[in-house]
Each structure stands twice: as C-alpha cells, then as structure tokens.
Amino acid sequence: MDNRADAGNIILKEMQELKLMEEKVIGAYRGFDLAILKDALGAKKIVLKGESDYDTEISISPVGLIVRLENLFEGIPEKQTFLEKKISDYERDMESSKEQYERPFEYEEELNQKLARQSELNNMLDLENGKAMDEDLGGLEENEISKDIGKNDIGKESMNKDADRGDEYGTVKI
C-alpha cells in the first residue's frame, strides 16, 4: 500500500481483533515480516520480524502508526552498531575475567588469618554464652528447677488443667 492512512487503518483494525498475548503476521515491510501483538499488559505493538525482532508501541493515529513503523525500520542500523559494540565489550570483559581467574588470590594468606581469628572469637563467645546461661540459672540442677516451677501458682494451674484432660499428664482424651 502506498497510502499511509489506509495502511494505518488496516493495521489498527487488525489490532482490535487481537487477544492478550497474541501475535499475528499481517504482511511484509521492506523485507521483514510485519506482525502485530498485544503483550501480557495489553500494550499493542508492531513488530518487524527478521533474524531479530524489532518492535515499537503503536500510535492510535493511522498515519502516526506508519511513521513509527518507518522510524523503527530506519533505526535498525543504529541498533546493529550498538549491539556489535556491546558484543565487543562483552568479549573483552570475558578475556579479562579469564585472566583474573587464572591468577592466584592475592589476599589468601590474610583471609586465612582472619578466618582463624574469627573461629577463635566464635569459640570464646560460645564459652562465654555457656557461662552466662549457667549464671542465669544460678547453678540449679534440673530437678530443682522442676520443683521451683511446681511451687509457682501459674505452673500449678496449667498443670492441673492438663491433668484434667486425661488420665496422665499431657494426654488428651478424644
């Protein structure tokens, strides 16, 4: 089609029939398949499909839609240059990473010393925590602690409630 308005109207009509997440090839444009799609969020796009896909959101104006399509096509060489540069950067970064991977870790000795010191400190903290717990209990033995709980009115009340539920403490009749 040579008329932008007519072409835009046809594309807009086709777009109205699309469902969410649907893509439809509707023709060709300068050697690319021309497709339309509605993504998961409901955004309507026009896509040029070739070795790669190039898309842009559509305009509600028929002529504006065709202008966006033309701009999308004209921008492909810029995208190609941009992507070729990114590939070159990634390849350079990968070579640099390989070189760094091959080198020994320069702080390994210092790391091992600090890890050993951390282990010592953790052991000292564990010992101190154990002593603090003993001091908090006041050196009472387990059976003395149980007797002390039995003297507590709250403890008696909860034990009696549990005892009423079954023949033995802690059992429940169903």
Rank of each mutant, 00 (worst) to 15 (best):
M21Y: 04
I174W: 04
G27S: 05
P104G: 04
K38Q: 12
E144D: 11
I10W: 09
N143S: 15
F73R: 10
P62N: 09
K161D: 08
D162A: 15
L115P: 01
M1E: 07
I11G: 03
V25S: 08
I87D: 09
I154E: 13
G50A: 09
G75Y: 07
D134S: 10
L121F: 08
K38I: 02
D164R: 13
P77Q: 06
D136H: 01
Q16T: 10
K13I: 02
A40V: 05
V172N: 08
K85F: 05
S88G: 02
I10R: 12
R68C: 03
Y29T: 04
K147P: 00
L37I: 04
L48Y: 02
M21W: 03
V172W: 10
E142F: 15
S119H: 07
D136M: 11
E78R: 11
L83F: 15
Y101G: 10
L48G: 02
V47G: 01
E22T: 00
D162F: 12
S61H: 03
T81S: 10
L65G: 06
G27Y: 01
A28W: 04
E84P: 01
T171P: 02
E120I: 05
L111D: 06
T81Y: 02
L48E: 02
Q100E: 07
S146I: 15
S97H: 06
K85S: 11
I36M: 05
N129S: 08
A163S: 14
E78D: 11
G64R: 07
E142L: 15
I174F: 11
V47E: 01
D2H: 10
N152T: 06
V172S: 09
E84D: 13
G166Q: 10
M124L: 14
E120M: 07
M21P: 00
I46N: 07
L65I: 07
S52A: 12
N143M: 11
L111C: 02
E14V: 05
M21C: 11
D39N: 15
A163V: 05
D153F: 14
K86S: 03
K151A: 10
M124N: 12
L18G: 04
D55C: 08
Y169I: 15
Y90H: 05
G139S: 08
E17R: 14
L140H: 06
E95L: 11
D33K: 15
E106K: 11
N129H: 04
I58E: 03
T171I: 07
F82T: 07
K85W: 00
Y101P: 01
L41M: 08
S158P: 01
G50H: 03
E141N: 07
M133W: 00
D33Q: 15
D6Y: 01
E57G: 14
E23C: 03
L127Y: 11
L48I: 06
V172H: 09
I174P: 02
D93F: 03
E144V: 09
E142D: 11
I66K: 06
E74I: 09
N9C: 07
E108Q: 12
K19M: 02
D126L: 11
N129E: 08
A5L: 12
L127C: 03
D148N: 14
K114Q: 14
K98W: 00
S146A: 15
T171V: 12
L20C: 02
